[in-house]
């Protein structure tokens, strides 16, 4: 018997814990056992570190993300240099450091992905909760509004908005949130209708609890699980959405290093410098894949019966 086994033997198993393990704690424990989810969390943390320490990388390499280094980054023929000691992942067509630009791009991707998700979630939860809880005409009107939003041609709207007010990070976040909240609102609405009919809400209603109290104390905690799952899946969607908009030049300011913009720059040069295409693409893929897998993991952890 090994030492660890002995330690387990000595520790009596607490079947009758007085402080019960809450549903969140149990979900966290299940999530920790999910290898794919743990690997995803590692990837996400690495990307976050990349974003966080982007200025540090700029300092170490001595390369600013926006500055062009034609003397060191371009070959005599004017082609970008490949990966090496000076330019870790090589340079782009204009002689900028690809690694430093990707690190700064991670900032944009995470900022836009998270902010748009938070915005869409808050808005979606409020709308869905009101529509589901009150039903009737409130629900009727809100449901039609959601239908309209969901049937909008979002690229067209983005093009028009950029033309009107110019590309910027806040605008990108707003556009993404606007086209994502409807899905959240629909899910929340459906769930709320379900909970409104449940006996536990009837029980507090029979005591004379106010609608606000029922929504906040009795319904909202039950929405945390589905909302968390959907939100964790909205993040990668938003990141891809941002990349798409930036690729098309409709997202953030084209000079700002964003993964989509970097990919767009690579299109003319990927034959001679495949790294220009491969590195940002792989980074984008890994990040969205990690968020998606984590979202699946969270869903399984919150609802183990599935």
């Amino acid at each position: 018997m090994s030492l660890t086994d002995a330690a387990f033997e000595a520790e009596p198993v607490h079947v009758d814990v007085v402080h019960g393990k809450g549903p969140w704690r149990l979900a966290w424990e299940r999530l920790r056992r999910d290898k794919a989810a743990v690997a995803s969390m590692v990837v996400i943390v690495l990307v976050a570190l990349l974003a966080l320490f982007a200025p540090l990388f700029a300092l170490i390499t001595g390369h600013d993300p926006l500055t062009q280094y034609p003397s060191t980054a371009l070959t005599p023929e004017g082609l970008p240099v490949g990966p090496g000691a000076d330019f870790w992942l090589g340079a782009d067509s204009l002689g900028r450091d690809l690694f430093v630009r990707l690190a700064y791009g991670a900032r944009i991707s995470l900022l836009v992905g998270l902010s748009a998700t938070v915005l869409a979630t808050v808005f979606g939860v409020v709308v869905g909760l009101l529509a589901g809880f009150y039903g009737g005409w409130v629900d009727g009107v809100l449901a039609r509004v959601l239908d309209v939003v969901l049937s909008f041609p979002y690229l067209l709207v983005a093009i028009v908005l950029v033309a009107a007010v110019g590309a910027s990070v806040p605008l990108t976040i707003f556009v993404i949130a606007f086209f994502s909240f409807a899905a959240m609102a629909r899910v929340v609405r459906g769930q709320t209708i379900g909970f409104r009919e449940r006996e536990f809400t009837e029980a507090v209603r029979s005591l004379g609890a106010s609608p606000l109290r029922i929504m906040v104390i009795d319904v909202l905690p039950n929405l945390v699980a589905p909302v968390t799952v959907l939100a964790s899946l909205l993040i990668p969607t938003s990141i891809v959405f941002e990349a798409t908009l930036s690729f098309l030049g409709l997202g953030v300011d084209p000079r700002t290093p964003s993964w989509g913009a970097i990919l767009a720059d690579s299109t003319d040069f990927y034959r001679v410098a495949p790294g220009l295409l491969v590195f940002p693409a792989v980074l984008l893929l890994l990040t969205t894949l990690a968020f998606n897998l984590l979202g699946d993991g969270i869903r399984d952890a919150l609802d183990p019966r599935r």
């Binding site: 549903p23 006996e199 104390i217």
Partner: peptide, 27 residues
């Protein structure tokens, strides 16, 4: 009122103590 469904009549996301205290809090 005592409800039929022992699974549906208690909010799964709240602790027993606070569920039983509901009538006292609301009143």
């Amino acid at each position: 009122m005592v409800f039929q469904d022992p699974y549906g009549s208690l909010n799964p996301r709240r602790r027993i103590g606070s569920i039983i205290a509901d009538p006292l809090v609301i009143h």
